[in-house]
């Protein structure tokens, strides 16, 4: 399954909605995300893709996870890092 589809499922589950309501451009806060939703989503994505995402709400250079597409980008980057050169 494409990464976007998997992330859409995770995000929609977090909000109790249908994945078809989400696109890569969906703004998480506008969709109803609060601070703890982001943390739970990062955890779910880490579990799903078996990756570690460096995300700390207090770090000035922390990842900006504003849209569904932002999450997809992070997952793609982490998976690319894991691939043997």
């Amino acid at each position: 399954m494409p990464i976007l589809e998997t992330v859409k499922i995770i995000v929609s589950k977090q909000l109790g909605r249908d994945p078809s309501e989400f696109t890569a451009e969906t703004d998480l806060a506008e969709a109803g995300y609060e601070s703890l939703d982001v943390i739970e989503t990062v955890f779910a994505v880490e579990e799903e893709f078996n990756i570690d995402i460096s995300f700390n709400a207090n770090s000035p250079d922390t990842l900006e996870l504003r849209t569904v597409g932002d999450i997809v980008s992070v997952v793609e980057a982490m998976l690319a890092k894991q691939k043997p050169a």
């Binding site: 943390i39 990062v42 955890f43 995300f55 700390n56 709400a57 207090n58 770090s59 000035p60």
Partner: peptide
Amino acid sequence: EALRVLSSDTCRPFAANRSGL
């Protein structure tokens, strides 16, 4: 750690470069 609020260097309350608890 899972709450993503821990600092990994030190605690700097009210500092511009604060990094968590």
